[in-house]
Computed example of a mutant assay.
Amino acid sequence: MSMFRKPQPLAVLVVRDAPDVVADLRRALETAGEAERPGLDRALALAERSAARPDAELRCRWVRQRLDSSGYTGPADSVEAIKTLRQAEPGLSLLQAATYAKETAAAEAC
């Protein structure tokens, strides 16, 4: 193993379809009757809030879901948590798992 190896990109891809949902809701609102408007307005506000969430928040939620589903409840950045995360997602490298774990622990501390 070389110390000069090129770092691997992070493996978790955040897929966002919220912008499409927001656009669909806006189009629906244009043709909605008065009875439908309050529900569509509320749905649009929720979708816009979801679309505004940063990728880091989504990654942290993903990590915590993996840890919780594995039965792990301790701090996200412990050695045990990183091991659990890598067992839950075998494609993650040690660096990737450690990065996500630190990011999750920092977010949970706020």
Rank of each mutant, 00 (worst) to 15 (best):
Q65D: 15
A98K: 13
D55F: 11
E57H: 13
G91C: 10
P9W: 13
A106C: 07
D41Q: 11
R16Y: 00
G71N: 10
G91S: 14
D77W: 00
R16T: 12
E30A: 13
R27Y: 08
V14I: 15
A45G: 06
L46T: 09
A76V: 09
R64S: 09
K83P: 00
E48Q: 13
R64I: 03
L67G: 08
D68Y: 09
V79S: 12
A56S: 08
M3G: 14
Q8N: 09
A23M: 01
L44P: 14
V79Q: 09
R86N: 03
A98E: 10
P38M: 01
V22M: 04
L25K: 09
L10Q: 11
D68C: 06
L40Q: 04
R64P: 01
A32Y: 02
L44C: 09
A11I: 02
M1G: 15
Q65I: 04
Q87D: 08
T73K: 10
R42T: 12
K102W: 03
Y100C: 01
A97L: 06
D20P: 01
R61W: 05
V12H: 14
E103K: 05
P75G: 15
G91Q: 14
A51R: 04
R26F: 00
S2T: 14
D24M: 02
R16I: 08
L40I: 06
A88G: 14
S93R: 04
S69M: 06
R16C: 11
G91K: 08
K83C: 02
R16W: 03
E34V: 02
G74K: 13
A43F: 00
V79W: 08
T31S: 10
S93V: 07
T31K: 03
R5Q: 11
L40P: 09
R27Q: 11
T73W: 08
L67P: 04
V79N: 11
L25D: 06
R5E: 10
E34F: 00
K83T: 15
D55C: 00
E48M: 12
E80Q: 15
